[in-house]
Design a protein around this nucleic acid. Structure first.
Lengths: 203, 203
DNA sequence: ATGTCTATTTATAACCC
DNA sequence: TGGGTTATAAATAGACA
């Protein structure tokens, strides 16, 4: 191939190795092209240099993906299987989490209370009490704040009803979107869909 | 390449085409091997003849699948995605659902209450009241039932403390497993034991 | 890293088995 | 198909820009 026979053995000098790679890469790609045209073949050639640089050639009549699908069919080995399995596992996990979340919500709503132990009941009751207290406090706070605003406006001589009436002030940030989904669709609790969600969230 | 310059153009004669394919296939595979050894590269070469016959070369240091995984990483194109669009979609959906469920639980606990509208707050409060009522009723029912059992035992002259004391009767079906996962986080329970009586106040 | 030059080695087209 | 043989075209190692 050049000035003197060479032996096919790893070129230790990094620079030379890269130079040779560059030249031979061009050569092999040319061969692949020729094979494609001359023999009407379909060729996929993927190369990583020792520095990790990628080069590829794919016959213009096809795509890498299509050719690999064919490859799989012929060889029987399913390259995507492992990916598929991972996805499925993920999905399963998500469904389990979903189930748990649903169960927790159901219990918080008061369903299935008959199957709970006394201690759990007491715990749940306490939790609910705490929550309801938080919500109520927030509600009171909102009322207080809005009343304050109303009074200030009035004090400044503005018409407090200028833009909105008192009721609408209270109702103000009624963000169209319902927040508790179960309240939106009472029937929904039957079994929404498959439930996967997240992996390790803490509630 | 032989007796007279040839032009790179599809060989129309099928037999000749196959002969040429066969010879050149050998040649290109040799080149791939040389590139692998000489330049320490990783090469995947897949070829389909015009008759559909598959030939491949893969550098011994890797596997077709591994090399293709690398290929995907570098190119960004995900060859498998299109195969599993449905699965992937499913997964996405599940994650969204879980997100919603988590959000709902968080709200039922009383988190994020500051971002809710007044109406939503009122709705949530009602829901929580209802739930706590259900739970409390069930608790009372259990107490009543157990007290009943206790009395009956006593009436029959049995020692009601024979196996368990009164407390443990109440605590009975304490099913080791925690039911509400969020309760596992201890700090959340700190503010308990308060106004049971005010849980159903309404403005 | 890429392109050019050149001596030499390789690949291979055409042919035959 | 696959293996030889051989004349010739192609590829390329080494050197340098």
């Amino acid at each position: 191939m050049g000035r003197g026979k060479i032996e096919i053995k790893r070129i230790e000098n990094t620079t030379n190795r890269q130079v040779t790679y560059s030249k031979r890469r061009t050569g092999i790609v040319k061969k692949a092209k020729e094979l494609t045209v001359l023999c009407d073949a379909e060729v996929s050639l993927i190369m990583f240099s020792s520095t990790g640089k990628l080069s590829e050639y794919i016959s213009p009549s096809t795509t890498t993906k299509r050719l690999y699908d064919q490859y799989q069919q012929v060889t029987g080995t399913n390259l995507w299987n492992s990916h598929y399995e991972k996805l499925q596992e993920s999905l399963k996990k998500q469904k389990e989490i979903n189930m748990r979340l649903r169960k927790e919500i159901r219990q918080r709503i008061g369903e299935g209370v008959d199957d709970m132990s006394f201690d759990d009941l007491r715990g749940l009751e306490q939790d609910l009490d705490t929550s309801v207290k938080i919500v109520r406090d927030r509600k009171y706070h909102m009322i207080a704040t809005q009343t304050e605003t109303y009074r200030k406006k009035e004090a400044r001589g503005e018409d407090p009803y200028y833009e909105e009436d008192y009721e609408s002030i209270l109702a103000m940030s009624n963000s169209g979107a319902q927040i508790l989904s179960y309240r939106l669709q009472p029937h929904q609790r039957n079994q929404e869909e498959e439930g996967y969600g997240s992996y390790n969230l803490r509630i």
